[in-house]
Design a protein around this nucleic acid. Structure first.
Length: 283
DNA sequence: CTCCAGGTGAGTC
DNA sequence: GACTCACATGGA
């Protein structure tokens, strides 16, 4: 898919000021979010929460064709300091190659519940399957917005039964999503208030939810709580880290510590680039 | 057909 | 703490 590759376009200049760079296809097709559609003319259409957005990449920058500009800028995290992040990138060959392949890929600032719920359904599933489950859940339980559906609120899923969640293809994940939805609907946990917690404490709270282990918690920390040093270690990143260590194995905890040391202050960003590079070069 | 996927949780030592 | 295993589904 050629449009997935980075076009190496320089960010556009307007009135002498450099606009923030973004590689839209990489950003929307790197396993962070799963519900965006690309039209034949290159227009990307999707929802941010229940706000419709249509965006396009022009000259390596973002152009908003429909929807509030501020929502788009926040969602696509145009304020993330890409220059500083690239400065801090590790210098080993794999990381350098990942950077060259993925330059402009941004870590999206996702709605918290949507991110948490989606990654609860992600365990032992391929990216295409996660998308299919996500779209099915939206269609069955979400509110219609134009010709699309918002991700269902926790309350909407909490009143569902496990069988209808399984109809969306969730398998054994249905029980976890249902249990977590009910816990949030009961009001004992407020995902927004949790943003005040330091990362380790927030990770502990998240892993207390059904279907949320360390990996999913780190996805939520990185994609929904702006903890850019959080490193989700899935099967792909696991292999990358093993290769970086020269094949030496280790326990999950050891590997996590190694990743933090090796990938630097923006380890989450580096991880996302390595993840996408590994998946691209596997094809 | 077999293999694998952005893992988690329970049981066991 | 670390190790093992079952758990559903669908695409390659």
């Amino acid at each position: 898919m050629p449009e997935e590759r980075n076009q190496e376009q320089r960010p556009q200049k307007r009135a002498g000021k450099r606009l923030p760079r973004i590689a839209l296809a990489l950003t929307l097709r790197s396993g962070q979010v799963f519900h965006w559609d690309k039209q034949a003319d290159g227009l990307w259409v999707g929802l941010v929460g229940d706000v419709p957005l249509a965006v396009r990449e022009v000259g390596g920058t973002l152009r908003v064709e429909e929807g509030p500009e501020a929502v788009a800028q926040k969602y696509f995290a145009l304020d993330h300091p890409l220059d500083a992040i690239y400065e801090a990138f590790p210098k080993d060959p794999m990381s350098c190659e990942a950077l060259e392949m993925c330059r402009g890929l941004r870590i999206i600032r996702q709605p918290r519940w949507e991110c948490l719920a989606t990654f609860i359904t992600s365990s032992m599933k391929q990216v295409a399957h996660i998308r299919a489950m996500s779209l099915a859940l939206r269609a069955m339980f979400g509110s219609p917005v134009g010709d699309r559906f918002a991700y269902p609120a926790a309350a909407a899923l909490a009143s569902a039964d496990e069988a209808s969640l399984r109809e969306c293809g969730l398998g054994y994940r249905a029980a976890n999503l249902l249990a977590t939805s009910r816990r949030l609907d009961a009001g004992t946990i407020d995902l927004e208030a949790l943003a005040e917690l330091p990362t380790d404490e927030l990770r502990r709270v998240l892993t207390g939810l059904p279907g949320v282990g360390v990996k999913v918690a780190n996805c939520v920390l990185l994609f929904a709580y702006e903890r850019l040093d959080a490193v989700p270690i899935d099967v792909w990143i696991h292999r990358v880290l093993l290769a970086m260590r020269g094949g030496r194995g280790g326990t999950p905890a050891q590997l996590a510590r190694y990743a933090g040391r090796r990938l630097g202050p923006y380890a989450g960003y580096v991880q996302q680039y390595l993840f996408h590079r590994a998946r691209l070069s596997a094809k």
